[in-house]
Amino acid sequence: MNTTTPSKLEKILAEGHLAVTSECGPPRSTDLDIVAEKAELIKDHVDAINITDNQTSVVRLCSLASCIRIKQMGLEPVLQMVTRDRNRIAIQSDILGAASFGINNILCLTGDHQQFGDHPSAANVFDLDSTQLIQTVKLMRDEGKLLGGFEMKKRPEMFIGAAANPFADPYEIRVSRLAKKVAAGCQFIQTQCIYNMEKFKDWMKRIRDRGLHEKVAILAGLTPMKNVGMARYMKNRVPGIDVPDDIVERLAAVPKEKQADEGIKICIEQIEELKEEEGIKGFHIMAIEWEEKVPEIVERAGLYPRPNLNGSQN
């Protein structure tokens, strides 16, 4: 299978391995070492590390600087980029900057509305949306052009990803919306965290019915629950997350000090189950401020060791 970029993540997927990615949230300060430390915890157990971009609209050390740092550690970053805070000038500029440091993966997002964050009085930008960001990266990479038409000599070589939320409404539109992102040039998808397996499998079936699983690599998104409180919070408070009652009940049924273990166990069971689901090409494990648990999850789910690309990674 041909690859379009020097991305290690793309190669692993092209070789038919189940990919494993995870993510690190940068700190709300200049302490870039925190990113390096988090990356260090998971580096041997994942193929690529997403760096979030001011997630939930809270100001944090920028994704680009964090990606450069972990790239310099010899790791594989995925630059997350939201369109909320930058217009097409800044977006393209940041993509060029990222590519100049050998960052070869981008996750194209629209971003949460700023009212959820620490600067609700900020103006938002939304010059582009996530689909248009995908189009933009593809144009830059495949045609060597900026949106304004300028032809560049050296192009950014980016493996293009996006998010998909099978649990948002209206449900029947969710496959169409993925198809739209694929039409725009999206090559891999990291899904919203999955708890409702039944609904997710139904979505996957619809994806397969459209043959979309052959056009885009779908990585199933998973977030282990730390305790029943987190499960209830995500069920009731976080828009677009579907936590079925049986997950909440299962966590509630074990003593408090055992709930974290139970959360990890649920996550591992989900991975085992989804490995059998046709069209799943890997897993995106988002252990929120719990990065140290990623190696254990990866090992116990039988996803370790990670494939060695015989030095072909750069």
Binding site: R84, T110, G111, D112, H113, Q115, F116, N124, F126, D129, S130, T131, Q132, A163, A164, N165, A168, D169, P170, I173, R177, K180, A184, Q192, P239, G240
Partner: peptide, 20 residues
Amino acid sequence: CSKRMLNGPCGGSEKGSCEV
């Protein structure tokens, strides 16, 4: 659309309501 998306809806759309 609170994010003036031209290719919506985003993942925050729930039961017909905006995430905002």
